[in-house]
Write a protein that binds this DNA or RNA. Sequence first.
DNA 1: ATCACAGATGTTAGCGGTAACACTCCCCGC
DNA 2: GCGGGGAGTGTTACCGCTAACATCTGTGAT
Lengths: 346, 346
Amino acid sequence: MSEARQAAPTLADVAVVAGVSHQTVSRVLNNSPAVSNATRQRVQTAVASLGYRRNTAARTLATGRSRIIGVIVVNAHLYGPSESLFGIEGAARELGYWVSVAGLARETEAEMADDVLRMVGQGAEGIVAIAPTSSAVSMVLQAVGELPRVLVTTAPVPADTLSVDVDQGMGIRQLMALLLESGHRNIAHVAGPCGHVHATAREEAWRETLAQHGLPCGLRVQGDWGAASGYAAAQTLLSAAELPTAVLAANDLVALGLMRGFHEAGVSVPRDISVVGFDDFPGVDQSIPPLTTVRQDFDALGSQCLEMLAASIEGEPVASGLVPTRLMLRSSTAAPRSGPVSFNGP
Amino acid sequence: MSEARQAAPTLADVAVVAGVSHQTVSRVLNNSPAVSNATRQRVQTAVASLGYRRNTAARTLATGRSRIIGVIVVNAHLYGPSESLFGIEGAARELGYWVSVAGLARETEAEMADDVLRMVGQGAEGIVAIAPTSSAVSMVLQAVGELPRVLVTTAPVPADTLSVDVDQGMGIRQLMALLLESGHRNIAHVAGPCGHVHATAREEAWRETLAQHGLPCGLRVQGDWGAASGYAAAQTLLSAAELPTAVLAANDLVALGLMRGFHEAGVSVPRDISVVGFDDFPGVDQSIPPLTTVRQDFDALGSQCLEMLAASIEGEPVASGLVPTRLMLRSSTAAPRSGPVSFNGP
DNA sequence: ATCACAGATGTTAGCGGTAACACTCCCCGC
DNA sequence: GCGGGGAGTGTTACCGCTAACATCTGTGAT
């Protein structure tokens, strides 16, 4: 049974069966117009009967084009990065590209550079790096050289580099608008881990929105992306001089932890305090209470990312982009107990 | 800037710089012992100074070995499949293999066959298919031919095919043992989607454990893997003639929905009813109440999967395997209100 | 009839590696 | 002094495909 494997038919085999030269077969395979219909038919029949498939390695070697794009992911276990990867893979397939991945498991930034190099050696035509920190961004850029690349990140990138990401600011503004319209004026934030660009971007947007409405900056508690940090943050907030009327969590997991913390302390969400998250993580529609959050369109992110990369590979000009978010209004938000306050209030 | 890209140095370039033949360079690269130390040094210096990297396509073409393994995932959005993928990628890297993925985004079973063929054409030395249904298994097997392959599945596979998966039965038995030891005798099950082998395996194990303890089979409610189906199942259970004292959910998301359903109806978890899940999904340690569940070791799964595949590629004999689970005892379980009942009780 | 020319096909030469074999040396034993 | 043998290196022939050029037809214009 192991010798049966060898039998992969080649162009030449097909050529013999079809009674033409191997080059004619190649022409048919590449849809060259310079082949008569009769010949084309014959070749196609031969291809089908032999179950012939092009050898990608040989093709890559001859053309210099691999149709492989390398995707490097840092923190693949997090919701955003993993969903981004899925979106990218789907979009790549649509465009006829292969996806070779690296870094899914416990990738460190130092390893990224090596992965980029491996992908280059593999003939990748372009690189997509899902890089949630500034240092990851510079690591990748350094290693990637002149190769076309798109960074999935909210970190600042050099002018000549393409980047795309979900619009963090838009998501936060949607959430904040909801809270502000409901009358909240004291809105705390539980931030994501230091150095993570999404954490920073969300925190920034929170500050800015508050400032734009002439409101004082609310409490800020440090968290990470995990639910346990939300629980801890709840303890912190509960011991504050004045309990905020709403909390903007860095992501849904943190929000979950917050809600449990409040629940245990007998503080009711949303009656006593509103909580909002970010991600629309699976299951948060069934949390107690169901969580108000924003959803990110990772398929759109994937498509946009790949369109940009493909254009860049073809040498066409493109611009970086942002993907919108969508507010998912559920039950973890309500007007503050004191009732709605007009913007012109006390 | 685009012509700079062409400059990838080749073996011949290195050979010229080192003043040896290209073959000698190749020898050094492949750690052949038949090279003097002086030459080896010279070549290595040249390699480093040129920043030379082997062309994978050329190497694959010449050797017939790509060191690529193709991974095909169905339902990549589900927790198990995606974590399995991460585990596999990590293990592949350890063994010096590349991972090429397909099917992350909305893969249908019909597409699997095509993906397998594409991977074969790409020169994949082996295939890993994460196949959660029996039909997916047969699809893959049909397409994969004689190529070494490992199926990540709990579905039955032909005797000559390797498979590996988390031990579903073990997980359920751990959960059931906990419930039974706490005194539960009326344990319902909310099943996962029909046709999914994990759903079936979990349900089977639930039935068997009950039978082994001489207990009547409990209520069975149909669900899918989603949290909303758990919520719906809670309604069903609440309207049953007799409320079970415990519910074994198909997975954590379903458990989350169940808990919300009970909560809304004023049925307290775990005082009035115990709920257990399966997965140790992110955030369930902070659900209300924190969920008792079982954790699956996806890294172990990945390693085992890749060891099996590598052995199979090398032609060594291997056997299929199972990966153990670990009980995560939290707060969604307690003794039934009626109090513990001895096994010899009424 | 002759030539130019386009359409269809074949031939040749790589792409960048590796495998197999050939060739030097140089040291050894007899 | 000469044949045998191994270490170190070079030469050649592929791997399967595509690009570029060469070669055939048959056709219409002259």
